[in-house]
């Protein structure tokens, strides 16, 4: 008998993996693949589906009817994302820096308050902000009048020029707690010795933050960025609850999510078109995939090398 004993097949690994693998395959991977598959088919005679290759994608990207709507939604979605990147994440970082400093008192209270909107229902957030900004009963006019700016009050959500930006700000207000908590966790994790050493060397608070703390939380910056990207390109609910599926005025707040919803399920007299809906979902998937891959290869890998 061979003295080298073969290791028995590690059945326990299979057992532990099984629930997650099964549930994810059944409820995430299978629907995703089936939806991508549907985008490659066209409706044939009598409700059958006929394989059509990339015809639907070509239609979506080139036809006079689909392409302008698609590019409008993509453009709006990038604006929505840009506002989150330029406003939400810097504010989240700023708040985290304040809350991690030992000078500020009552940080637990602030942390909870700032995070509260994140756990509220989007429908509620949309409703509250509609009321705040309402030209009829909103407080935005009184608020501006207090600073002598009353005449600048506008029906913000009803103007093509401002609706999307204002909705982005509402979303920022709601979700700023998430980057704040992630940054805060990273900042708290920085060893005190590093900061004390820098202090001894005569670094100011400003220098300590930008030269010591910020480089050390760069991995979190990347994670926050990619989470924002994925979240924004999947966004739908805020626009739908405040502006409806037609994402008015004149589609100025139409993002990928609302475009998809309207196409897939139909709207009012417009019949639903599941196949083109699946095609739009395919484009959304590709955009998100591209963003995540850029993050993985362009950011995360470089970071790992930096750590050596």
């Amino acid at each position: 008998m061979n003295s080298k004993r073969r290791k028995p097949f590690p059945i326990h690994i299979v057992v532990f993996l099984a629930p997650a693998v099964l549930i994810y395959t059944l409820f995430m991977i299978y629907p995703l693949i089936d939806s991508l598959r549907l985008g490659l088919y066209q409706a044939g005679e009598g409700g059958t589906e006929v394989f059509a290759g990339f015809t639907n994608y070509r239609t979506l990207l080139t036809s006079n009817i689909w392409a302008p709507t698609l590019w409008n939604a993509v453009k709006n979605n990038f604006i929505f994302f840009a506002v989150h990147m330029l406003v939400q994440n810097p504010i989240g970082l700023f708040l985290a820096a304040l809350l991690s400093s030992r000078v500020v008192r009552g940080t637990a209270v602030y942390r909870t308050l700032i995070f509260t909107p994140t756990v509220l229902s989007v429908v509620l957030i949309g409703f509250i902000w509609r009321l705040i900004l309402s030209p009829l009963w909103g407080i935005s006019k009184d608020f501006l009048s207090f600073f002598g700016l009353g005449q600048f009050n506008q029906p913000w959500l009803g103007l093509e020029s401002s609706a999307l930006i204002v909705l982005s700000f509402i979303s920022v207000w709601q979700y700023v707690g998430i980057p704040m908590l992630l940054f805060l966790a990273a900042l708290i994790g920085i060893p005190d010795e590093l900061i004390e050493a820098a202090r001894v060397d005569g670094a100011t608070g400003w220098n300590v933050f930008w030269r010591i703390k910020f480089p050390l939380i760069l991995p979190t910056v990347g994670i926050v960025a990619v989470l924002t990207f994925v979240g924004n390109f999947n966004a739908f609910d805020l626009i739908y609850t405040t502006q409806g599926a037609l994402a008015g005025p004149n589609f100025s707040t139409d993002i990928m999510g609302t475009f998809f919803f309207r196409t897939f399920f139909g709207f009012q007299l417009q019949p639903g078109n599941p196949i083109m809906g699946a095609t739009i979902a395919g484009v959304m998937f590709l955009i998100i995939l591209t963003g995540v891959l850029l993050y993985l290869f362009g950011w995360q890998r470089r970071l790992q090398r930096l750590e050596f």
Binding site: P135, L136, P155, W156, P249
Partner: peptide, 15 residues
Amino acid sequence: TDGYQAVAYPDAQNL
């Protein structure tokens, strides 16, 4: 009504 661009159906009903 003022700011009608942002006035929704229930707003108008209430007004």
